[in-house]
Design a protein around this nucleic acid. Sequence first.
RNA 1: GGGGGAGUACCCAAGUGGCCAAAGGGGGCAGACUGUAAAUCUGUUGUCUACGACUUCGGUGGUUCAAAUCCACUCUCCCCCA
Length: 414
Amino acid sequence: MHDSRAGSVYDTLLERGYIAQVSDEDGVRELLAGTGVRFYIGFDPTADSLHVGHFIQMMVMAHLQRAGHVPIALMGCGTAMVGDPSGRTDLRQMLTLETITHNAERFREQMRILLDFTDDRALMVNNADWLLDLNYVDFLRDIGVHFSVNRMLAAEAYRQRMEKGLTFLEFNYMLMQAYDFLELHRRYGVRLQLGGDDQWSNILAGADLIRRKEQTEAYALTIKLLTTSEGIKMGKTARGALWLDPEKCPVFDFYQYWRNIDDADVINSLRLVTFVPMEEIRGWEHLTGSQLNPVKERLAWEVTAIVHGREAADSARQQARALFAGPGEASDMPETLLSAAELEAGVGLLELLERSGLSPSRSAARRLVRQGGVRLDDEVVHDEALVLTAADFADGHRILRAGKKRFHRLRPTD
RNA sequence: GGGGGAGUACCCAAGUGGCCAAAGGGGGCAGACUGUAAAUCUGUUGUCUACGACUUCGGUGGUUCAAAUCCACUCUCCCCCA
């Protein structure tokens, strides 16, 4: 870490805007002023890739690790079996243990992009190890006694569910997460749990439990959720969440998401998803309008470099520059190969739009053409019945565009 | 266990026998304007071999020339009482 003097990590987190709520600010600041503090964040493997929401939390872990503390990434294979109802309006789909285990494996790999797990500088544990074999009655007598249903129902996280209904299965989630905290306290001396702001009540429940069972002070700190200046959750793309897995969200799309970010969100994003020093960021705060374009480019490059590596970030940037400057270089963009046989017969434009994924159906492709949203190289195509043959590929490849920002290369096989 | 209510396209939500591929809003997509931004305006938003055809209104089976709309059974959810 270049910009954090010893003992001031907490202030770094504060300054960069990560912190949403803290149970005891002075206590946490003091705790973090030392070194080698073990803290944890839980990640439930409910999908086969992490997304930007998790990424912010990993950034916080990374900041703390660089300041000499020891992050524990908890894989919630046990809790994922139940599903966290916090902030949700409906029941999560129940996942099988196989799916969960598979997802956890993917999480595990992705965690390495930001955290250094060598020599126990960070730990990875799995709550399935202690949750799955619990004895029901023992658990109820040991842990369940400490929970007041009245208090739980009052928790903000459940409020939405009070209207739609809450199953007993999900209602137990809080106890499980609280128990995790206790277990990690016992095993590793953990006294601080971090999490998304929607986890506030779950984390507090754990801190309370530790206080009661171990007479030790434990702390809760939540991290701001990534939202736009309007308070809307960030990280949604046309094709769903902003996944860290390049298979689920191509590097170019990932880069473009940040490159196209709203003016009002640039500075905030730089603080949260990059390691660009605050001094540098402050220098950009007064910029407005199109002056922000280079800053957006920097933002996009920095995040992409962290997640996908410098090389991939360079390539995405170069590609973007080229494409928006002109017809462009078609280096890494997704492509569709056309066989000599089908070019002989001729391939319809609508079919190509569908096959390339630029359009979900032929009907949608037709609409796109009618609205003037389709281009071959730089020319708008109005003829929806257009057929491409080998002759159209005299120069090698063609670039098919849908709208201004979606590109696809068409290339004949050799 | 008893009583009441609801399930409509990506989401919310109209529609209670033909004029319904289904109002309206949100969201998405495209075009204009721009800075690869926002806001605004316009168009569009089931599928297809496309001025027509086909498939949709929780599921199944009926009634009818004709059903999202009526009947039966069934699944799911919500509310009140226990």
